[in-house]
């Protein structure tokens, strides 16, 4: 089984004179929730459109489930569920009829899947109500239901929480997490609400002006965004022993240059500095550090944090 569901190599897309994607090499591991972060117009939707076959690359390659041939890519897309940009629905049809079209198209046997999927997204009670009379939140749920019908292995969701109320956002997040953890569906999700992605994604890609600036795991991101006290003393080994003995903590890291990053006792820095001073250590640096995801992202794309 291939380790990656989607990989792109030097993917570039040009619209007339505008470079929408520039040399993007992206890797989405099986089983991950890949949060795609970028400003409006950064290239998130363009990449999704290329991956799903809605648009064609100017250069570069796309690999889905390990397949990269033209016909194989088309076939591989049967294993995907897609909701890109505004909910793609037949407004004059009911939720059930919208799903029935998808069921027929994919050759999914029986009607049981439709019922189950509608229950899963909380639209089982919409009856004969036409999709055009749905709220934006309901349309988003229905678009997700369409994407989920047929048990996809890979979901591509572009701003799926747009238009949802706060409760809806939480429900959507819980649902996606459940789908990922319990069924193992890999998810590529874009959003410009970073706090929301931070609560969901296991991997991140930061895109800016068509260029993929960075890919990182949740651990790596947390390390970068984590609040800590930066300590520089004359003897890091002794300081480490003091932290363990006097402050009963192992939540710190000694970096190769001897700097210590302490992730606990952030509320009581004086206790830490006091313990180090009492042990006779000369403190050269002692300062709280770290940043929120928003400020990390802003800094990464070249703005002011």
């Amino acid at each position: 089984m291939n380790e990656y569901v989607l990989r792109t190599r030097r993917l570039t897309k040009k619209y007339k004179n505008q470079l929408a994607l520039d040399d993007v090499s992206l890797n989405i591991r099986r089983g991950s929730i890949y949060g795609f972060i970028g400003q409006n117009g950064a290239g998130k939707s363009t990449l999704m459109k290329l991956a799903t076959g809605m648009a064609f690359p100017t250069s570069g390659t796309i690999e889905l489930f390990g397949e990269s041939g033209e016909k194989e890519l088309v076939r591989a897309r049967r294993r995907m569920g897609i909701a890109i940009e505004q909910p793609a629905l037949f407004p004059q049809l009911t939720a059930k009829e919208n799903l029935e079209i998808h069921r027929l198209q994919r050759g999914i046997p029986g009607m049981e899947g439709i019922k189950k999927t509608l229950e899963l997204v909380g639209l089982e009670g919409t009856g004969m109500k036409k999709a055009r009379n749905f709220s934006l939140g309901m349309k988003q749920r229905l678009a997700l239901a369409v994407a989920l019908l047929g048990d996809p292995e890979f979901l591509v969701l572009d701003e799926p929480t747009n238009g949802l109320d706060p409760v809806g956002v939480v429900e959507m997040r819980d649902l996606l997490r459940r789908l990922n953890r319990e069924i193992g569906i890999t998810i590529l999700i874009s959003s410009h609400i970073l706090s929301e992605l931070h609560l969901l994604a296991t991997h991140y890609g930061i895109i800016h002006k068509g260029r993929l600036l960075e890919e990182l795991t949740l651990d790596e991101l947390q390390r970068k965004c984590r609040q800590y006290i930066r300590i520089k003393v004359d003897s890091p080994q002794r300081a480490a022993a003091v932290l363990e003995r006097e402050l009963a903590t192992t939540e710190f890291e000694v970096l190769p240059d001897g700097t210590i990053q302490l992730f606990e006792h952030l509320e009581h820095p004086s206790r830490v500095s006091g313990a180090l001073a009492e042990a006779g250590l000369a403190i050269e640096q002692f300062m709280p550090m770290g940043e929120a995801l928003e400020s990390y992202f802003t800094k990464r794309i070249g703005g002011e944090a």
């Binding site: 809605m54 076939r75 591989a76 897309r77 897609i82 890109i84 793609a88 198209q105 369409v146």
Partner: peptide
């Protein structure tokens, strides 16, 4: 909805 058909595999 044309997207649904185009991405249907």
């Amino acid at each position: 909805t044309i997207k649904r058909a185009v991405t249907s595999g």
